[in-house]
Design a protein around this nucleic acid. Sequence first.
DNA 1: GCCGTTATTGACAACCCAGTACAGAACCAT
DNA 2: ATGGTTCTGTACTGGGTTGTCAATAACGGC
Lengths: 207, 207
Amino acid sequence: MARPRSFDRDHVLHAAERQFRASGYNGTSVDDISAATGLGRGSLYAAFDGKHGVLLQAMAGYFARLGQFAPKALAGPDEGALERLHAYLLRAVHGVPLAADVPPAPDRAAAACFAAKMALEIGASDSEVKRLANDCFSVLATAVAECVRAAQRNGDIDPDADPDDLAYLLLTIIRGTDVVGAYGHSPARLTSIAESAFALLPRPRHR
Amino acid sequence: MARPRSFDRDHVLHAAERQFRASGYNGTSVDDISAATGLGRGSLYAAFDGKHGVLLQAMAGYFARLGQFAPKALAGPDEGALERLHAYLLRAVHGVPLAADVPPAPDRAAAACFAAKMALEIGASDSEVKRLANDCFSVLATAVAECVRAAQRNGDIDPDADPDDLAYLLLTIIRGTDVVGAYGHSPARLTSIAESAFALLPRPRHR
DNA sequence: GCCGTTATTGACAACCCAGTACAGAACCAT
DNA sequence: ATGGTTCTGTACTGGGTTGTCAATAACGGC
């Protein structure tokens, strides 16, 4: 009946996300997005309603990927919960893990949580971005807290510890490594931070 | 001999810092800086060499304030070291503390570490900003590590723990709360994160 | 094969921005 | 007072930005 789209929507949004990640929101022009995605200006406006629309929809796509991967990586039987937490922490510290085995990104600066980066840059004046970013955080917090509870059931974490508090703390550390990574610190340093954090998790009092 | 400056250099840089904090680097125009500082374009260029110069010098001023306050807040006798660490952590979580008793900022978003915010936004493509930000981090890391060592000498922290690792971890948490704060979480939640982190510090094995 | 419908493209206009140039003002030494 | 020097504000320019528009291309039902 009518001419079909010549591009894959998710693919375009992902390319735009990479661009926003690399240059920030205010640092990327519509022409940059156009070059990164291969789409002309007109198509961008027709399909996504301009720069801000691209951002919102790219963040929604990011949120969807996050909500799909994180629970999968953290859920499972109680026996392996602590080890899953350990593995997730170690990977997250080198960039938000969004796929099973692919390392998140070549350079650390481009691997920081997309939602966090946008929230820090424009969240103060863009409540929609702020809300979307918070949603991303909530999904992760829920998944991590559930994993902590599993580890508690298995006797690997102090049952008196509040699993939600612990989840918030762990995610705060992960987000903190985004910043420390942006300073230029080595992956080894970030791994060391993650290991230190993991070692401090409260173990059961009496064995 | 010649006409003297009609403005206070540090005062101007501080106003510019506030503006950069509120809108980001790419989000503030020279006119914004002009309005925030009360200086005309000409003066800005003559005194600070344009927008980028203003940023660099504002960051240098921030670094200086940081290097002056943090060691003062953390240094002292071994007996009080753990408590100083506690107090610093609790305050830092609500914004980088730069003065003795003034609370850092009214809203949390504007209180995030200036250096960290700039490093995340443009550090990937501006090595000078990246270096300055890292300097800020190093000053804090040194001061915190020294305080950890003092607490270890006093028997309040496990002497087997690596004080540098611990300092990095604590600062990572503090930087992480900048991000979590930007999501819009309440001060109470941030305090809770800080208390959780403090509670997990490794205490001496046998009392 | 034609036609309605939708995507795509490139160009265009209005606007904003960084940086510069110039003219005037303020100060101090003499 | 006056002149030399430096600060201050404003107007200007070249470049880049965003959002829109009209013309063109592609597809599928008929």
